[in-house]
Simulated scan of single mutants.
Amino acid sequence: MVLLAPFSAMASTDALCGADETTKYNCLMGENVASLCAAPDSGETQMLTYRFGTKEKVELEYSATPDNGKTFFAFSQQIDPRARINQVWFDRGSVRYLMTECSGGNCVSDGRLSVLRGDKVVMNAECRNPLSAPPSFSRDLVQFGPRREDARSLSRLLKWEEAANPVEELYQTESKKRGD
């Protein structure tokens, strides 16, 4: 007898989210995974957690709750007439951890995980998710509209920001590698 898992469970099998959490973003980079998880798995989000590492060892964890004063930020930026970079990040001291998804027809990669220290790019890795589960932010957490006025956060733990990250530089790197 073969049991089939629901699509939502299949899409997050590589995620670093717990059984009581839902996956809001997942980026696979070889052995490492970056996951954005929300708890509880239904109702108003009481904790939003970023985890980076492997199933065996989480190397970095950052959690925002209504009581701990931590938060995540979101922004969307048009980088091409047919490509928009949607972003969610958090700052830990002077280091910014940035998750992105690219939507539109001129995307050089579906998503990236970047680490920035000031204006220096410390890490810029392309997500290598399967085509069936591209790196994308859950639309019940944040909505990125085609117009700025359509964009909004659906959680008090994720604040809409009006500041841009250097996404043109982060995505241009991959474009240059391919010789475009």
Rank of each mutant, 00 (worst) to 15 (best):
E174D: 11
S155T: 00
V115C: 04
V108I: 12
C37K: 00
G145H: 08
Y50K: 07
P146V: 13
T71G: 15
Q143L: 13
F52R: 04
E59N: 14
S76E: 05
Y25I: 10
K55G: 15
G18K: 11
L170Q: 00
T22Q: 11
R128V: 02
P166D: 04
Y50R: 06
R139E: 05
A125C: 08
M29Q: 12
L36W: 00
L141V: 10
A133K: 12
S8M: 12
S175F: 03
P135R: 01
L113Q: 04
S109A: 07
P146S: 13
G145R: 06
M123P: 03
K70M: 00
E61W: 04
V122W: 02
A39R: 06
V121T: 14
R178W: 07
F75A: 07
A5Q: 06
Y50G: 06
E149M: 15
A9Q: 11
S132H: 04
A151W: 01
F52L: 09
W89H: 05
C37P: 01
G18F: 05
F137M: 00
R156D: 12
R178N: 07
A9G: 08
C102Y: 04
S76W: 02
A38Q: 05
V108Y: 14
D80A: 04
S35F: 13
S8H: 13
K159A: 13
E44M: 14
C27Q: 02
D180I: 09
Y25A: 09
G53Q: 10
W89V: 02
Q77R: 12
R139H: 08
Q46R: 08
D14T: 09
R178F: 06
Y171Q: 00
M123E: 07
W160S: 08
L3S: 15
T100A: 10
T22H: 10
Q172E: 08
K57P: 07
R178A: 09
N124Y: 05
L157W: 00
L141I: 13
F72P: 00
D20N: 13
V142H: 01
L36A: 05
C127K: 01
L16A: 00
A9V: 13
W89N: 01
L154D: 01
N106T: 12
L141P: 03
T65Q: 02
S175A: 11
G93Y: 11
K176H: 06
E21P: 03
E61I: 07
M1P: 03
N32Y: 11
N129K: 03
P81N: 05
A19T: 14
V2F: 15
G30R: 09
R147P: 03
L131N: 10
T54L: 02
S63K: 14
E149A: 15
F52H: 12
S136G: 15
N106H: 14
K176S: 12
A11K: 15
V33F: 14
D41C: 07
T22G: 08
R92H: 12
M47S: 13
A83N: 05
A125H: 13
P6S: 12
L154Y: 14
V2M: 15
V33T: 15
D119Y: 02
G118N: 09
L28E: 03
V95L: 07
K24A: 09
I79L: 09
K177Y: 11
T13K: 06
V58K: 04
E56I: 14
I79E: 03
T49Q: 10
G69H: 11
S42Q: 05
S109H: 03
M10W: 14
G104P: 03
S132Y: 01
N165D: 06
W89F: 00
N129T: 01
K176D: 10
R147Q: 08
